[in-house]
């Protein structure tokens, strides 16, 4: 059963069970980032995953950012890396501005 991208996979079941006192196990695997690029509306059915290795994937700047033939996990990691560096850039530039003001 393919559950990738289904709208119900939000983790609220896990949170509710936790609220009832349940333990979770094996969640460290989540850090492997098994997260694929899916359509923004049809998140479960619209998945160009089979096309990606043959195509190029670009970010909002129009630039490539990952080896598309390496699969969806490296792609997810790269996306998160960009996000982290973006956040870092935002916070440091804010710091720089703040320190100039100070």
């Amino acid at each position: 059963m393919m559950v990738r991208g289904i709208k119900h996979a939000t983790g609220d079941g896990l949170l509710m069970a936790q609220r009832a006192g349940a333990g979770l196990k094996g969640m460290g695997g989540l850090m492997a980032l098994h997260i694929a690029a899916v359509d923004g509306v049809e998140t479960a059915a619209g998945q160009p995953a089979r096309v990606v290795p043959y195509a190029i994937s670009i970010n909002r700047d129009g630039k490539r950012f990952v080896d598309e033939s390496a699969g969806y996990v490296p792609m997810a990691r790269q996306c998160f890396r960009s996000l982290v560096s973006l956040l870092r850039w935002c916070s440091t530039s804010r710091c720089a501005k703040a320190s100039r003001r100070a």
Partner: peptide, 12 residues
């Protein structure tokens, strides 16, 4: 495109 989670590996 947006990120679609596949699995968590673990659970309750």
């Amino acid at each position: 495109l947006m990120p679609g989670i596949t699995l968590t590996f673990g659970g309750i």
